[in-house]
Design a binder for these strands. Structure first.
Lengths: 345, 345
DNA sequence: TTTACTTCCGGGAACGCTTCCGGGAACGCT
DNA sequence: AGCGTTCCCGGAAGCGTTCCCGGAAGTAAA
């Protein structure tokens, strides 16, 4: 039972030709019923598994999807789970590579998967990435590409993403409704699209409420907790400190929260706080942090569906662009008027 | 530039044979210097990439490792990152599949990867899994298998794991040192090895301090926050409630913490709490939760190293078993005597 | 009986690559 | 001049499939 059985073995044992075996196994029409059964029975018995390499060599398909993500934090891990779910259903296997938010790493990963191992890609790009040549190579090879969450600027490919602007708008509007007026925003690096979109939402909300934008309250810092902590410390040290902070990720919200507590300020009274992603941690800390939820699992599923469609319909899926709506979960960190809205979750 | 260039193309263009091209590309000795250079130059120009399927068909190697994990929570994601790191270095690509702690899912994943796509496996088994036939099939095919974190009971394969007993011991001993005497433990399902080992450590510590074991204080519940919350509620409702709780995961610790707060008890004075994994969240909540740290990244790296060794040294790696030591990080949730130990991290 | 059409099956090429084998040319030595 | 070596290179088989094509029966129609 060492060497796996091949189609040839079956042919030899049954004294028929390999082509017949091949056809029988795939239920082709032009093969006798008895032979078909005999072949299937023997295949079963020998535990026959078609050799994927031979198949791939022939039909140049691997039924494998390369997924490249910047990391595997809560949101992305959930999205990947969604991808996995529908990919498996459709007979695809998924290869997940993390780029660790590194441009170089992303190129290496792409290269590796590209060589010949995968049928196509589902990508969320690293925050470091500013040029997309390595991804364009994929398209040159006519492989399907779907991007999700973080989009690629100038490539015409199907995509799923969150309506980040709306998320920023909901968050900021909520703070305004609660009476906060000097609202700061902790955004990510300027190269990061999702960050800019959320910032747009923030600006839109201020405009709607006719609150003047103070450039000093718009901070771009790295996408993590430590930087958010430092940035918040600076914000709170201002002569006219902000009375609320909107961070574009929950990890940053945590950083901000640490700085706020250290300063001895109380949420939501002294200062309001809203995060983004609705990670479980937001409801665990106290006070709970309001946060914009995104349907991550659903988003992953859609990404995979788009991929499979593009794979099958050879027609150019042009620029299909699915946009999902976020939903704000309000918790203690920003809820001044308890009468106003019921606490969710 | 649509069809990728093959060795044949090069041969034809240079008017030499494919075998010569093949040899030239791999720097074989018996090929003229000039031809060699010519071939290499042309290959470069055509952006030639050897077809992996053809290679695999031939030499039955894919340079791909199948990694099966129960989920992608903080610890496992970190471990996978470690695996990725050294695998990439060694020229291997990694395929990650999550079993979602489901036995059935694990079988499907194994099956899929097994078919022919991977050279071997690095596995952390699902908590649901009690029989290991699907893994034994892998060995039957003479593929290398390395297990990590959660071991497979009766299979002789190289493994890396944490010294879970020591972790349980450190945690419990610490609580005892702090003067707690009625210490409860929230363990996982009885089928979960790591849970039992940590429980062993707990028992060992009690024995060492000559504290009698109270079976009512040993709770087996599901490995997540909600169940831990419920279990803790019950514990706290006892006539003689415990004065400390050791949970075998941080997520469970969070659940416990919620129940404790709800009951109006204060940590560390009314009750002590120690978790396991040292997830970032432990230092974010307040009070910070003491937790047993495991070198997850390192553990992942070792797993991959073991795999590659097994792959190369054909000699049976017998039963290599690497065991890593955990380290307790003490935070506010369990630190009564501030004089005793300095707070770490 | 011939013709034509099904039904079922085998032969062989092809996918892209490696590797074994063998042969020709050039060279040096006797 | 003859022989053995060394250096390069081409031919061909083989990895496990699929698929096209053609052929041998059998059956129905002319």
């Amino acid at each position: 039972m060492n060497k796996p059985a091949t189609i040839k073995d079956i042919a030899r044992m049954l004294k028929i030709s390999t082509s017949t075996v091949s056809r029988a196994l795939r239920d082709a029409s032009d093969v006798g019923k008895e032979t078909k059964n005999a072949v299937k029975a023997l295949a079963e018995e020998l535990n026959y598994q078609p050799n994927k390499f031979a198949l791939s060599l022939q039909q140049k398909q691997t039924h494998t999807i390369g997924v490249i993500v910047p990391n595997l934090d809560y949101v992305l891990a959930t999205m990947v789970k969604g991808i996995d779910e529908v990919a498996l259903e459709a007979g695809y296997t998924v290869m997940v590579c993390q780029s660790n938010e590194s441009f170089g790493r992303e190129i290496v990963n792409t290269r590796r998967l590209l060589d010949s191992l995968v049928d196509g890609f589902i990508i969320s790009v690293s925050s470091e990435t500013k040029v997309f040549d390595h991804f364009k190579k994929i398209q040159d090879k006519n492989m399907p590409v779907v991007v999700f969450d973080r989009l690629i600027a100038d490539m015409k490919v199907p995509s799923v993403r969150l309506d980040n602007k709306d998320g920023g708008l909901q968050a900021t509007e909520h703070l305004l409704e609660q009476g906060y007026r000097r609202i700061a925003i902790l955004a990510g690096p300027k190269s990061l699209g999702i960050s800019n979109e959320r910032l747009d939402g923030y600006l839109a909300a201020l405009k709607k409420y006719k609150v003047k934008v103070d450039p000093d309250l718009i901070i771009h810092c790295d996408f993590n907790q430590d930087y958010a902590y430092l940035a918040t410390k600076e914000l709170l040290a201002m002569k006219k400190r902000p009375d609320a902070i909107f961070t574009i990720s929950d990890r940053m919200a945590i950083g901000a929260m640490l700085a706020i507590k250290e300063k001895g300020l109380k949420m939501p009274d002294d200062i309001g706080l809203v995060g983004f992603n609705n990670e479980p941690i937001t409801s665990l800390v106290s006070p709970g942090i309001s946060s914009v939820d995104q349907p991550a699992f659903e988003l992953g599923k859609i990404a995979a569906k788009l991929f499979i469609e593009t794979m099958h319909n050879n027609e150019d899926m042009g620029h299909v662009e699915e946009i999902l709506k976020p939903k704000l979960y309000i918790r203690e960190s920003s809820q001044r008027n308890v009468t106003k809205t019921g606490r969710t979750k």
